[in-house]
Design a protein around this nucleic acid. Structure first.
Length: 547
RNA sequence: GGCGGCGUAGCUCAGCUGGUCAGAGCGGGGAUCUCAUAAGUCCCAGGUCGGAGGUUCGAGUCCUCCCGCCGCCA
């Protein structure tokens, strides 16, 4: 990255947003966690040190009011909902390193420290904030954005009732950072990906003057928050508080934080302004480097429509994961993720994709280790052989006597092995931009070629020619082994179950082994007989499925 | 209203930097096989690349206008 700050991080730091605890978690929350988990596991696969955080955002008036409505203490209310997010993470096999809460003690201290730093650097001042205020939106609206409706003044945008308020707050000098923000964007066109979000933000920064930001609220209205240092009459604005979580979780203000920073934020498009404009400005005000990258994703629609509580079509990932298996949900979301788009979810699509996985990948495994073949002998015979010599001989003698067929099969073999050798590198490039649908697509494409090769070689007709039969099965098994290793970040449970079936040692499931002929120790005892339990069974569409 | 993105086969997408004037998977139709989770393999049909102009020897790809969808700001 080119810019005013040099990256000193020795660990790849990746974050989800921290989720606001005003409601139970949904598919969108899971999506953010999954994209980070895929990335983290990919980094683990190639042994890149990394640190992954997720968590909950727990202060603010909405939480305070929701707690009151539930006749409970805000703290207990937050504990309950935060646990639901932790539960979703656990059930979904999300391997975060820290689950941070904005009520955590170290966070409270860090926010105060950060505030004081920005204050001392001269970017916070007192000012008067007035306008039409919506409690539910926690937003001031200008005159042009409110209207009269049923005798009330309401926000044009959200319909919520607004009242005119005037109060003294603390302000952040966001305007002081406009040109620096433009420079940041121009110096790194990949600062925000995908490009459509980047262009939006850059154009806005170039055209619209940034208004200073009110960053506190009177304690008389907002009790559930962090007090402004040295001024108990004001509470810190939730977004200021929340964004600092990314520094809290890596040890700021201790200099230890530089081991991880700058990091990569994965966020939904609805909060891009906070993460892509305010947050970098806050950081600059504190003389801290901006993030390395902000990755923005769209939303999941339900059958083409926005999910909404009022429509009753908010997908519950726990229910879906429980029925189809969490790895099926992980795989579907990963395989259909296109960051720049809103993506469409239905259980039918999920289940069709689940069937595809069973047909195109699970079946290859059971096919190769069925009673008709000897996988152990196949691996033993070919995992260390010089395949050039093997094919030289076959091209001379023919495939089971057929010279023409030998040529065709050799060509197919070369193509498959080339693809396998390049698979890790290809996916590595794709994963650097979180392009999971193409990553998973590459694996499925290669597995298609494996089936084609097996069909072309017809090993079931080669009972009298063990050498050729074993060659066919070995190629199929070894390419499948590589694919399964590389599928681990997306479907850790299923991949490992299939790797177990072909007896790959646990220690040989890393990127080091994700190439052709890199493991000679598997296959022994790999058998799938009638009556054996398949790794995954097809199921009918769930009763009452989301469609 | 201003700004930005998108619009490719029934569906989901690929096609980046102009050059075999378009591909893949799924779905559909047909054939074949029975080593394998009723799995596999092969063949075929499906496209005004939103519309109209322009630049160019040549445009899905570049430019202009229009239509539709989505988003941001006001």
């Amino acid at each position: 990255m080119v810019g005013a700050y040099l990256s000193s991080a020795s660990k790849y730091f990746i974050t989800t947003p921290i989720f606001y605890v005003n409601a139970a978690p949904h598919l969108g929350h899971l999506y953010s966690m999954l994209l980070c988990d895929f990335q983290k596991r990919w980094l683990d696969l190639k042994e890149t040190p990394n640190y992954f955080t997720t968590g909950t955002d727990e202060h603010g008036l909405k939480v305070q009011i929701a707690a009151e409505l539930n006749k409970t203490d805000p703290r207990l209310f937050c504990d309950n909902l935060s646990n639901k997010f932790k539960h979703l993470a656990q059930i979904s096999d999300i391997q975060y390193d820290r689950f941070i809460r904005t009520t955590d003690a170290d966070h409270l201290a860090t926010v105060r420290q950060f505030w004081e730093t920005v204050w001392k650097n001269g970017y916070i001042y007192k000012g008067k904030h007035s306008g039409w205020y919506s409690v539910s939106d926690e937003t001031f609206y200008p005159e042009s954005q409110v209207e009269q409706k049923d005798g009330k003044t309401v926000s044009v945008e959200t319909g919520s009732e607004v009242i005119y308020e005037s109060e003294e707050n603390y302000f952040f000098k966001l305007s002081a950072f406009q040109s620096q923000l433009v420079s940041l964007y121009k110096s790194d066109p990949q600062f925000v990906i995908p490009n459509n979000y980047y262009l939006d933000l850059l154009k806005e920064l170039e055209r619209e003057p940034l208004q200073d930001l009110s960053i506190s609220r009177p304690s008389s209205r907002l009790q559930w928050g962090i007090s402004v240092p040295n001024d108990e009459s004001q509470k810190i604005y939730v977004w200021f508080d929340a964004l600092v979580n990314y520094l809290t979780s890596i040890g700021y203000p201790s200099s230890r934080y530089k081991e991880f920073w700058p990091g990569t934020h994965l966020i939904g498009k609805d909060i891009s302004r906070f993460h892509c404009i305010y947050w970098p400005a806050f950081l600059m005000a504190a003389k801290v480097a901006p993030p390395e990258k902000v990755v923005v994703h769209g939303h999941w629609l339900m059958g083409g429509s926005k999910m909404s509580k009022s429509k009753g079509n908010v997908a519950d990932p726990l229910v879906i994961g429980d029925y189809y298996g969490i790895d099926s949900l992980r795989l579907f979301l990963g395989a259909n993720s296109i960051l720049s788009n809103d993506c469409d979810f239905t259980e039918r699509k999920l289940n069709d994709h689940r069937d595809l996985f069973i047909d195109k990948i699970c079946n290859v495994v059971t096919r190769c280790i069925s009673k008709s073949f000897d996988p152990a002998r196949s691996v033993m015979s070919y995992s260390n052989e010089d395949m050039n010599l093997v094919w030289k001989s076959i091209l001379e003698r023919g495939w089971d006597g057929d010279l023409e067929k030998a040529k065709e099969l050799n060509k197919s073999y070369d193509e498959i092995v080339d693809d396998t050798e390049q698979l890790f590198s290809k996916i590595d490039v794709l994963m650097s931009t979180f392009t999971t649908h193409k990553s998973i697509g590459e694996i499925f494409d290669l597995m298609l070629k494996v089936n084609q090769f097996v069909n072309a070689t017809e090993p079931w007709n080669l009972k009298s020619n063990e050498s050729l039969q074993d060659l066919s099965i070995f190629v199929a098994l070894d390419v499948t082994r590589v694919c399964l290793i590389l599928l681990q970040p997306f479907i850790p449970g299923l991949s490992n179950r299939l790797l177990d079936m072909i007896k790959v040692e646990s220690s040989k499931r890393t990127a080091t082994y994700a190439a052709f002929q890199q493991d000679s120790s598997y296959g022994q005892g790999a058998k799938f007989l009638k009556g054996s339990t398949p790794p995954l069974n097809k199921v009918p569409l769930r009763a009452g499925a989301y469609e």
